[in-house]
Amino acid sequence: MSEPTVSELDSLPVPEVRALAEGGEAKVAGSAWKLAAYVFVENRLAVAGLGVVVFMFLFCFVGPLLYHTDQINTDITQFTLPPSPAHPLGTDNVGYDVLGRLMVGGQTSLEIGVIAALLATTFGVLWGAIAGFVGGWLDQVMMRIVDSMLAIPTLFLLLVLAAMFVPSLPMLIFIVALVAWLVPARLIRGETLSLRTREYVDAVRVMGGGDVRIVLRHIIPNTIGTIMVNATFQVADAILTIAALSFLGLGVPPPATNWGGMLSNGVSYTFAGYWWLIYPAGLAIVITVVAFNLIGDAMRDAFEVRLQRR
């Protein structure tokens, strides 16, 4: 067996110029990403959704730098004040400024949403890709684990987990991710089953490439559309899940809060007419979740168009 080197390739003669002319030019279409981005931008709703998400992040993370409020010490003399120039969205039952609280609570909601979605997606994708790629009994075992976890009602599982562990930010992220990774795992396993029989996977095998290379460089990149779409929905779901948990009193401990916690807190005052304790937090949840869903939908379209034009 001769030792092929790159310099050896250099010295190889180009057979004939004839072949060059026959090969011809390539179409200029840009990468798959550019195509997908083009389709995405065409979708007005999605661009609006993206705008809302960007605004929400700025509002929650940059807002407190411009709009200073005390979100640690309560001020019981200033409770449930209606909106006024000093407090644009009023104050809550312990005297926190609601606008400022919306920013701080949003930080928690968005942090948990994004980090839990990332964790769940990463773990789910690897789990599904390994199960689908290796197949056989390993696939059976791994997927039965997913099935049995899916069989437990989510809210019940969340309640048990939240009651078992002391609710802290990392713990909440972990709990949300724990119920969320199952869906991407199933999705990616299904795609892997069809992708692993593709000829470009055989080509890597013939080169001597290993399983790790095949999964990481060939199978997972080809599920990127599914992954991105699912991850976007995961963020929205995680924000809702954490809101639901907080509503049930299992959220982050005070003085920290999140939108769900604010909502839960305000609901006690529904009949007192303190609308500023309910609507801001409720609307923030709804608008953010809808925005993420719009982005997810548009990404699904964008990636499918790429496949159609293939």
């Binding site: 798959a32 593709r198 000829e199 470009y200 055989d202 080509a203 460089r217 060939h218 990149p221 080809n222 990127i224 293939r310």
Partner: peptide, 10 residues
């Protein structure tokens, strides 16, 4: 198959 044998993402 010149379509299935090249990874579309590479």
């Amino acid at each position: 198959d010149p379509y299935g044998s090249l990874n579309p993402r590479m």
